[in-house]
Design a protein around this nucleic acid. Structure first.
Lengths: 163, 163
DNA sequence: TATTGTTATACTCTATAACTATA
DNA sequence: TATAGTTATAGAGTATAACAATA
C-alpha cells in the first residue's frame, strides 16, 4: 500500500507565521528543487493510481509492462528492462505472475533460442484496454489543476530531463 | 544505492523501427502520463543527487531534514513528518544518526514536555550551507536542457499537482 | 482521551552475485 | 566470450501495531 497522500491544500502562503504554533514547516528551499517537486507530484499521482488500479490488481510496474506489450508484441524481458530501467531479476516474478494470471503468454523467440517473446493474451488485451482508459482518467483527475496546455508543457519539460 | 540512470539519449525518433532488432521499445503511451514522466525525471535527478551528496554522507531524506531544520530551528519530529509526508517510526533512526554525527541537537521543547525541539549544531549549519550549494549546482546540471524560465515553469506546474 | 516519540516488525522495492542455456 | 533469463539473497524504503510519557 502506498503513501498517505494528504494534499492538505495549503496554497501559496508566506510560509510559517511567527505567531501560533504551526504544523507545516517552511519548505521554501526544498520547493525550489526540481527533484523534490517531481517526487512529491509523483507521490500524489502514485497514490491515486494505486486506489483506482486496485480493482485490476495492477501496480504501476505491472501496468507499464502490459501497456508496453500491447504496443510491442513479442518484446523480451530484456527489452522491457532496458525500456523501463529495471533490473532483470526484479522482472522475473512479475512476468511469472502475469503469466499465471493468464494475461500474457511466453512464446519461443523466432531468432534467438535464449530469449522468450512475451505476448498479451486476449484477456490481457481486454484488461489493458480498460486499464489504459482508467489511467487516462485518473491522470486527468490528478492533474485537474492544470489546463490541457499546461499538462502538455509539464510532460515536455520532464522529458527534457530524462529523455 | 540508486538506479543506473543511463539516459541513453534516444531523442524524438518515430519509435521502434520495423527493420533491425532494437533494444528500446515504443513507450509512447507511457510517455503521455504525468506520473510516468515525473518518476523517470526524478530517478535521473535522484541518481545525480546520490553521487554528488555521497561525500557529505547525506541521502535525500537527510538533506531534506537538515535543510528544513536550518530554516525552522526547533522543529519537532512530528512537524518534519507532516511536512515531508513520512511516518514517525521511519524518522527515529534517521534523527538519531544525525544526532550521533553531531549535526543536530535535541533540546527539551519549551511548551510541550512530550516533544523534542531539533536544532542544527554549528557543524550541522556549516554542512547544510555546503550541501545546499552542491544541491543547487547538481540541480542546475541535471536540468541543463531547460532554460531558467522553463525550470521555473516546470516547478510551478509540479506544485499545482501536489501543493 | 489524545498526542509525541519510540520499539519492534513486516512488507515492498531495488540491488548484487552467481548459475544455465544458448549465441 | 558474451548475452537472456533465472535463482537466491541482501539492503533500502515504507507500512502497521503497540507502548511510555505527557497533554
Amino acid at each position: 500500500m502506498p503513501a498517505p497522500a494528504k494534499k492538505t491544500s495549503t496554497k501559496n502562503e508566506p510560509a510559517a507565521s511567527a505567531s501560533g504554533r504551526s504544523d507545516r514547516l517552511d519548505a521554501r528551499v526544498l520547493e525550489t528543487l526540481v527533484g523534490y517537486n517531481a517526487r512529491r507530484a509523483w507521490l500524489i499521482i502514485s497514490s491515486v493510481f494505486s486506489e483506482r488500479m486496485a480493482p485490476y490488481g495492477l501496480k504501476q510496474i505491472d501496468f507499464s509492462v502490459l501497456s508496453l506489450l500491447a504496443h510491442n508484441p513479442g518484446a523480451t524481458s530484456r527489452q522491457l528492462c532496458t525500456t523501463l530501467d529495471i533490473l532483470p531479476p526484479n522482472l522475473v516474478s512479475l512476468v511469472a505472475t502475469l503469466d499465471s494470471r493468464g494475461l500474457i503468454e511466453r512464446r519461443p523467440h523466432p531468432h534467438d533460442g535464449r530469449a522468450v517473446g512475451l505476448h498479451l493474451t486476449s484477456a490481457g488485451e481486454a484488461l489493458v484496454r480498460d486499464a489504459e482508459q482508467t489511467v487516462v482518467q485518473l491522470e486527468a483527475d490528478a492533474s485537474a489543476q492544470l489546463t490541457a496546455r499546461e499538462r502538455e508543457t509539464l510532460i515536455k519539460l520532464l522529458q527534457k530531463i530524462y529523455l
